[in-house]
Nucleic acid binder design. Structure first.
Length: 433
RNA sequence: GCGGGCGUAGCUCAGCUGGUAGAGCACAGGAUUGUGGAUCCUGGUGUCGCGGGUUCAAGCCCCGUCGCUCGCCCCA
């Protein structure tokens, strides 16, 4: 056998996943389930450009170092061919939320509000890849965007949670969706003597690490912001009751209302738990109300596989109008990596074909396709045994090996039995499996 | 951006205190002039990631570099 003549060493580019055929099919099937759940709530599909203007991407406080800038290999001088000039004009999108804000601001006049859209596309982040973390990964976003301040009902938060919950439940996952509220969190922080916005933002970042760091480390860090750090942590963790100030009460009411309404929409769907957790913070500054993170009960080490929240005005820097929204994102790539090691995804075949037609069976492929089957036809005059073996390796379960008048000889790989059937009957037979 | 580990055949890897490279799997052909997964036979000279150094001699030791990987930061 000829060895490859290329001397070029082919190695994967780190953080940019590529799948083998069976994995790609599993990935697509997982995506289809999520899309179906999203559309069952009436969210319309949307795609935006992979590339955005850099200033739009970094306007929301995203670290410019994490953004992949674009340049043309043959760019002229002064056209952004020099990183040190900061002349990068275009970059790959970092998330789907900012492009959506830009899209909504841009097409404001043609859209009807409230605008419900889902978006399933890759995003790119200039990070060091590691387990479950990629530089290119797919997100599955849904957002509910209202027109004008005060026009975003709490029911929208509940709907978003329920919709994502439905999507995850449709994948037969065991997960915990933890919900908190920034108003509540800020009220609690204020109640424990953290009085400035800047300090509360610092505190939120520290609380975001609550599960990762030791309690003493957390207390040390919070200790620089409040003398009551220990009591604060205990309150957040539910070890002691929250005090009943007006702002805390208001925040609690929001969380509880969102949870109750979401639970109504979820009904008796199984697999997931929807709970309040006052330690959920989210690092991003633009959240103003509901915040949510989701972990798998079977793989908590994966981190959050679905998170989001409410933002009072996402398109602030892009539009005169206030465009409040609430959205959530399923980390499809991270989730799919784990799912593909589970059934049924782990045993997906490498082909969508349902039946193999051996070389030289006249008219069979055409007739079976006309009957509605997905058909792979052998085009090489190889020994039949070899054909059958390769077909089964690709994940096929049946082959048509010969034609007998209007009937085809259908072979079952597993039992190795053959029998004559018409094309329509073969369709029925295979679809019943 | 910062640390740890690793880089040998298409894949997984072995290669002793340095003596100029091997196995399994996979793949292809044949035994078997077309209904399979068994068995047997046959088939690999691979810049041992790259560059430099030490040595009579380097896959092995040293330095650098690139890549992959696992963590940190941050996040899905």
């Amino acid at each position: 056998m000829a060895t490859p003549t290329s001397s070029k060493k082919l190695s994967p580019i780190s953080g940019f996943p590529e799948y083998l055929p069976a994995q790609q099919r599993a990935f697509d099937a997982i995506t289809a389930r999520i899309r179906q759940a999203y559309e069952s709530f009436g969210y319309t599909p949307l795609e935006t450009a992979a590339v955005e203007r850099t200033d739009i991407l970094i306007a929301k406080g995203i670290d410019a170092k994490e953004v992949y800038g674009l340049r043309r290999l043959a760019a002229q001088q002064g056209e952004g061919d020099d990183d040190t000039t900061g002349a990068k004009e275009l970059a790959l999108r970092f998330d789907l939320t900012v492009p959506t804000a830009r899209y909504v601001a841009q097409h404001y006049a043609q859209l009807v509000f409230p605008f419900r859209r889902h978006q399933i596309q890759p995003v790119w982040r200039g990070e060091r890849p590691q387990k479950g973390r990629y530089r290119q990964f797919h997100q599955c976003d849904i957002d509910y965007i209202a027109d004008g301040a005060g026009n975003l009902p709490l029911a929208a938060d509940a709907e978003i949670l329920a919709c994502a919950f439905t999507a995850l439940a449709s994948l037969n996952l065991n997960f915990t969706m933890r919900v908190n509220n920034r108003k509540l969190l800020n009220a609690i922080l204020t109640d424990y003597g953290i009085n400035t916005v800047a300090h509360r933002q610092q505190a939120i970042k520290i609380i975001d690490d609550l599960e990762k760091l030791s309690r003493s480390e957390i207390l040390t860090r919070l200790g620089s912001l409040t003398p009551d750090a220990a009591a604060l942590v205990a309150a957040l963790k539910g070890e002691q009751p929250l005090r009943n100030t007006t702002t805390i009460y208001d925040g609690l009411r929001e969380v509880n209302e969102v949870l109750e309404r979401a639970q109504e929409l979820i009904g008796d769907l199984r697999g997931g738990q929807l709970v309040a957790d006052y330690t959920i913070a989210r690092g991003l500054d633009y959240y103003t109300g509901t915040v949510v993170e989701t972990t798998l009960q079977d793989a908590p080490e994966l981190g959050s596989i679905c998170s989001g929240g409410r933002y009072e005005n996402l398109a602030e820097s892009l539009s005169e109008r206030a465009l409040p929204g609430v959205g959530i994102s399923i980390g499809l790539s991270r989730l799919a990596t784990w799912l593909m090691s589970q059934e049924p995804w782990a045993s997906f075949g490498a082909t969508p074909a349902e039946v193999y037609v051996a070389y030289g069976v006249p008219g069979a492929a055409q007739a079976l396709r006309a009957a509605g089957l997905k058909v792979e036809e052998g085009l090489d005059d190889k020994p039949l045994g070899k054909q059958l073996m390769q077909a089964e390796k690709r994940g096929l379960t049946h082959a048509v090996t010969a034609r007998n008048g209007d009937m085809f000889i259908l072979r079952n790989f597993k039992t190795r039995q053959e029998a004559p059937y018409g094309a329509d009957y073969i369709l029925k037979l295979l679809q019943q499996r």
